[in-house]
């Protein structure tokens, strides 16, 4: 089993490398291309895996830490694969006043991950945003691109239960889920 997993990971890594190389073909070797490249690669892979960053650093002939530096600087870039469901907790001014941090803590506790991380089963990824424009509903959490209002910790549990039920419905007879990861 572990061997299988290693093999799958190696295959995935080779695939990332291949796809990054493909994208790099369309760019010149200029440092100023770093951000457009990162955007394109993330657009294709969903995030910026290690292999992709290394490939890009080599292509632009810059220390790999410089690529990492830019990736960690901008909120837009992800170091973790996206989950099946995206959870975005608003910490804008209104949501902050209405206890956005308490909501965030509830998500963190339930999912057992920190912001900008993905659960190991790749079901959920968690992040924060700064105002999504529906402050009257504060505290807001955007779940799969749908803003949910008045998300207090109990509602966090409710939303998660909803996902749970949905998952159960999708595989009647307790069949094992097909591998999402």
């Amino acid at each position: 089993m572990a061997l299988n997993k290693d093999k799958r990971m190696a295959e995935e890594q080779a695939e990332f490398k291949q796809q990054t190389k493909q994208i790099l073909k369309r760019f010149g070797r200029k440092r100023s291309n770093l951000i457009p490249i990162l955007q394109k690669v993330q657009g294709k892979l969903g995030y910026l895996p290690r292999e992709a960053m290394l490939e890009i650093a080599e292509f632009l002939n810059m220390p790999d830490i410089d690529v990492y530096s830019v990736v960690t600087f901008y909120n837009q870039f992800r170091l973790n694969p996206p989950g099946k469901h995206s959870i975005r907790v608003c910490l804008g001014t209104a949501c902050h006043m209405k206890g956005g941090y308490i909501t965030l803590d509830a998500w963190k506790r339930r999912l057992e991950i920190e912001p900008s991380e993905t659960t190991p089963d790749r079901e959920f990824d968690l992040d924060t945003v700064a105002c999504v424009g529906c402050c009257t509903m504060a505290p807001v959490t955007v779940v799969d691109n749908k803003p949910q209002g008045k998300v207090e910790p109990t509602k966090v549990d409710g939303l998660l239960l909803g996902f749970e039920l949905e998952r159960k419905k999708q595989k009647p007879g307790g069949q094992l889920p097909t591998d999402e990861a």
Binding site: P63, I65, Y68, S69
Partner: peptide
Amino acid sequence: GIGALGFAYRGFKRMVTTFGG
């Protein structure tokens, strides 16, 4: 010319670290 260390993250989280931490 080694480039093992660099800055990562932003704001209060800013730190000197290696590639991938």
